[in-house]
């Protein structure tokens, strides 16, 4: 799951202005642009502009962090899943998120940043992750709604990334997308079970979860294109293929239909089919909430980051011991 349109970081202060470039660099850059224009893929060892590299490290590592932090809200319910079947499904899903994080970290590392540097950026609060994970998972219905809406939004964001110009990222995304579709389907099916075979209280629980997750899900596509300073460059470089607003509209159109068959309503009085546009109209998104949560002041920001830092610190002796053990065996073999 879980990329959020990653150009939100444009607000963090922007990149430093480019230093003067040599004639050689300018020629290399022209060749690079021509390859991008021709639809060529860029591999790790190929020449690339420094800004392209930086943009990708930022986007891929944020994406990886999101997968890893995204395990926390769902991990919260593994021990309390209502049946053994649901527990096995949830475990498999959370394990997938760990795997997706690892594919993506590996892709980011091909750009010359080490895994420890990437972790350090997350743990020190310099790097961001998708703000959706800073909301709490209060009931079992949240597990279903995360699968249906949050993973659904993530898939819509991610499918175009399979054609990203940076090949190691594109390859990782192909793998992620292939594994992801079960996440959305299991969520919808869990909700459908409660809506069609559950009690009145369970149906209310589902509606309550939809009410809480709907708007944050729409925010996952990132701010409107007009307010996304890095969008245009990312589009030109083939890092990003479809704009935030188009993806968001596509998501709304799809999910509104799905909500009908589920028997829930979205918490938006302005939601209606627009015959002229051939799309569903929806209300105004509260972007001040989005920026507040991105900025660190969501309901669970401190808890999530705290849990990651604790896991890293508590695991330090294990990492050191494994390495010491490996060195001991290497020495033995050499002797």
């Amino acid at each position: 799951m879980y990329t959020q349109a990653m150009d939100t970081m444009g607000k963090d202060g922007g990149e430093a202005k480019k230093p003067l470039r040599s004639a050689e660099d300018m020629l290399a850059e022209q060749k690079f642009e021509a390859r991008i224009d021709a639809g060529d893929f860029i591999e790790a060892k190929d020449w690339m502009p420094e800004h392209y590299r930086k943009t990708l490290v930022r986007q891929i590592s944020q994406h990886a962090h999101s997968e890893i932090v995204g395990m926390l809200p769902e991990g919260n319910w593994i021990s309390r899943a209502p049946t053994l079947k649901r527990k096995a499904i949830l475990l498999a899903k959370v394990q997938d998120e760990a795997g997706h994080g690892l594919y993506l970290y590996a892709a980011a590392e091909t750009l010359g940043t080490s895994r420890d540097q990437l972790f350090d950026a997350l743990h020190s609060g310099r790097a961001k992750y998708s703000s959706i994970f800073n909301y709490p998972t209060l009931t079992w219905a949240d597990m279903g709604v995360i699968g249906w809406l949050v993973d659904g939004a993530a898939i819509m964001n991610q499918v175009p990334l399979c054609r990203c110009s940076y090949a190691p990222y594109a390859r990782a995304m192909v793998r992620v997308c292939r594994e992801e579709s079960f996440h959305q389907r299991q969520g919808f099916e869990a909700l459908l079970t409660m809506m069609t075979r559950g009690t009145e209280a369970q149906r209310e629980m589902v509606q309550d979860a939809v009410n809480r997750w709907w708007w944050p899900s729409l925010m996952m596509f990132g701010p409107p294109d007009a307010d996304s300073p890095n969008s245009e460059q990312s589009m030109r470089w083939g890092i990003k293929r479809i704009g935030n607003d188009d993806l968001r509209q596509k998501f709304v159109d799809a999910t509104v239909e799905q909500a009908k068959s589920l028997g829930v309503t979205m918490p938006d009085p302005d939601l209606r089919w627009n015959e002229e546009r051939q799309h569903v109209d929806f209300g105004v998104i509260d972007w001040s909430e989005f920026w507040r949560v991105v900025g660190g002041d969501g309901p669970c920001n401190r808890e999530r980051l705290g849990a990651r830092v604790k896991a890293w610190d508590d695991g330090a002796w294990v990492r050191e011991a494994a390495l010491a053990n490996a060195r001991k065996h290497e020495l033995k073999e050499a002797a």
Binding site: A106, A322, N325, H329
Partner: peptide, 8 residues
Amino acid sequence: CGSLHAAD
């Protein structure tokens, strides 16, 4: 199919 970190 990809890469990973491991001690041994």
